[in-house]
Design a protein around this nucleic acid. Structure first.
Lengths: 338, 338
DNA sequence: CTGTTAGCGCGTTCAC
DNA sequence: GTGAACGCGCTAACAG
């Protein structure tokens, strides 16, 4: 009973293979009676068409490739979930290319398009160079960027400038004037992460709009980890004139800040306000005020964008910008009066 | 420059397609000079064989399916990471089938094997029924279970009985006699999760071995969520004779217990010891004593088991049992003396 | 409406 | 050693 082919079905139903193919893809009209015959034959043989043969014949792989540094940060899982949901309704499978090194990144960008393994590419956070984008375009590979941006490619962005602004603004509205910012490394992001520069820009802008001078000493950068953030926060908080509030680039880093405050015996939010970014699951548990990104949506919308691009290859690059949401919890409050 | 085929290469090198195929798969001996010709032709044409055509011809899909409720619990991501690592060295791709409902579970179990989409199946935590296992076997589909068990299928298990025992034993060794257990729903696990029953068994066994009577009142079950665990812990802690220590089925639930203690003004670990299970990332941050599972390894070893099973279909089912590790942090201590 | 036939790109017998 | 021809299972013209 292993595997019936379309020919077996055709024979059993007493029709030609093309007819079977027709009822399978209901492309052309088929007379109700023959359709019926074919369908019962299919049922009796427990027939299921071979996707591989179908793909070869169609010249399409019916799968899309998702390239991302998935396992480095919790936020990717949420995005992936959105992708999965959007794709599970379609005929497309997806295969994951996990990137944890620059070498691997380059390999993926170079090999995946030419290997005819996928009909489209979904790239998360990683930003391809102009050269690489040209390569994608020339290969005729539909490509959508999520959480990254390029003018030749459709992309769905989270408005990180606005998010950074929103976080900073919240602190300002509470009355803070001395606002520290602990961010990911701005300069040497080997993968070229957009959000790092964007959130920083939002921070600066909010300061400027409120007439607050930017104090370089209040901006610390370090590897995205709790430990490093804790160290940086410690530096910040032991300054002669320490900030009364700290905005962290990510929730993970915000937790490091919280820890530093705890180490120094500073009460949050009374003596120090802390705001994070991402709204990962634990954030709620720890009552962290943060900025929520709509990660699931970004994945889902990116996948749908790609699907439509595959269906309609000539379309112009589209841009979707997703907003962020301020989630007020218990780690921010007005500063103590002097 | 889109896509050269094997025929183009053959023509350019002035040989037959079979020869090209031979150097591609270095199956049969090819004279060094012709091999050289072919290889330069391949390089000049930037040729890359079509995986799809290859698969059709080979009759193998070169992809394996991974079925799991991935996005429900953080621990699956770690397992998946192990799978990815093991598979990225091989020629196999993998497709994720995410299961969030019982319907979806049944669809996956039924459809995936017959659709000739995959050469092998990796099933995480979900336990197929005997009937379903028969179906897999009859379909000739190599299948490996991770974190689940069946005598007809190879599987890699985490020794949850030992883990439950270990957690409970740790509490006992500290001097506790009144030990509560907050678990996932034991009865109506629609997916048939093994670990639920196993950890419970470990808990009971440790109690018995220490000569402590099992107190049904101390065992509470509820949906695996922080909120529900918090509610259950509250019940436990407001008992006339409350437990001095609580073992939680998962770290997530342990956090709910911690919260309940906080609500009631109970100091941890002085007035209440809490131990979790999983050692998810936040556990370290919150200094939770817990039992670590080797999740990454379970994924990696499962994938390798499957690969070897695909290569050698006649092999007998194998069983791999991975140990657990007690991670002592700051939420457990001896009980207060009366 | 429906059957026949020619590919899709590659592996693989078979003769040479 | 090497090339020609067939087949994997399906779709898409092209005739009827």
């Amino acid at each position: 009973m292993a595997n019936a082919t379309i020919r077996d079905v055709a024979k059993k139903a007493g029709v030609g293979v093309a007819t079977v193919s027709r009822v399978l893809n209901d492309s052309t009209a088929v007379s109700p009676t023959t359709r019926q015959k074919v369908q019962t034959a299919i049922a009796e043989l427990n027939y299921s068409p071979s996707p591989i043969a179908r793909r070869l014949s169609l010249g399409r792989t019916m799968t899309i490739g998702v390239i991302a540094p998935f396992f480095i940060r919790p936020s990717y899982v949420e995005r992936l979930r959105g992708v999965e949901a959007a794709l599970s309704d379609s005929e497309y499978d997806f295969i994951i290319y996990n990137v944890e090194t620059v070498t691997r990144r380059n390999d993926c960008f170079h090999d995946v398009p030419r290997q005819e393994r996928v009909d489209g590419l979904l790239i998360m956070t990683l930003t391809p160079t102009d050269e690489e984008v040209d390569y994608f375009v020339q290969s005729g590979m539909p490509t959508v960027l999520i959480d990254s941006r390029h003018h030749h490619l459709s992309h769905v962005m989270i408005d990180d400038v606005a998010g950074g602004y929103q976080a900073t603004r919240h602190l300002i509205d509470l009355g803070h004037r001395k606002i520290g910012y602990i961010s990911d490394l701005l300069q040497e992001s080997p993968f070229g992460f957009r959000p790092v520069a964007d959130r920083y820009e939002g921070y600066r802008q909010a300061l400027t709009d409120a007439g607050i001078d930017f104090c370089p000493e209040y901006h610390r950068q370090g590897e995205l980890s709790r430990r490093e953030a804790r160290r940086l926060a410690q530096e910040l908080l032991t300054l002669p004139d320490p900030p009364t509030a700290i905005f962290a680039y990510s929730d993970t880093q915000a937790f490091g800040v919280l820890r530093a405050a705890q180490d120094l015996g500073l009460k949050v939010p009374e003596q120090l306000s802390v705001i994070g970014y991402d709204d990962i699951e634990i954030a709620e548990f720890l009552h962290l005020t943060t900025v929520r990104q709509h990660l699931y949506e970004s994945g889902a919308q990116g996948a749908e964008l790609l699907l439509s691009e595959i269906a309609n290859p000539l379309s112009r690059p589209q841009e979707i910008v997703l907003p962020t949401t301020l989630v007020e919890r218990d780690t921010t409050a007005p500063p103590l009066l002097r």
